[in-house]
């Protein structure tokens, strides 16, 4: 998992080739914290297929809103810098894995 912020988001996500999964979270979001270790496991499992990033929305609010993320947890899927899919609220790790397989 790569931690990204407003300085690195463009380089790591928008200019990246291939599939990038972004876990939008914040320290106050309990469901996000539930999900985080499971996403990390996916990152390990699919390291050849996608790049996994985490973005703390609390300190990167404008960036999150620019990505139309206004609720947590949200998982964004980017392909060659374009947002191609998103999962938000009640996100189960199984859903992320299914979406990943669909896009990879």
């Amino acid at each position: 998992m790569i931690e990204v912020d407003k300085k690195t988001f463009e380089e790591e996500v928008l200019k990246a080739e291939g599939l990038v999964v972004v876990d939008f979270w914040s320290p106050k979001c309990e469901p996000c914290k539930e999900l985080a270790p499971q996403v990390a496991e996916l990152a390990e499992k699919y390291q050849d297929k996608a790049k996994f990033c985490m973005l703390d929305t609390a300190s990167n609010r404008r960036l999150a809103i620019s990505q139309k993320v206004l609720g947590l947890p949200t998982i964004g899927f980017y392909k060659d810098g374009e947002k191609v899919a998103e999962l938000t609220k009640d996100v189960a790790v199984e859903d992320i894995e299914a979406k990943l397989n669909e896009l990879a």
Partner: peptide, 11 residues
């Protein structure tokens, strides 16, 4: 998740 929320601490 685009402004509609049920969890104040989350969002």
């Amino acid at each position: 998740g685009k402004g509609v929320s049920y969890c104040a601490t989350c969002d």
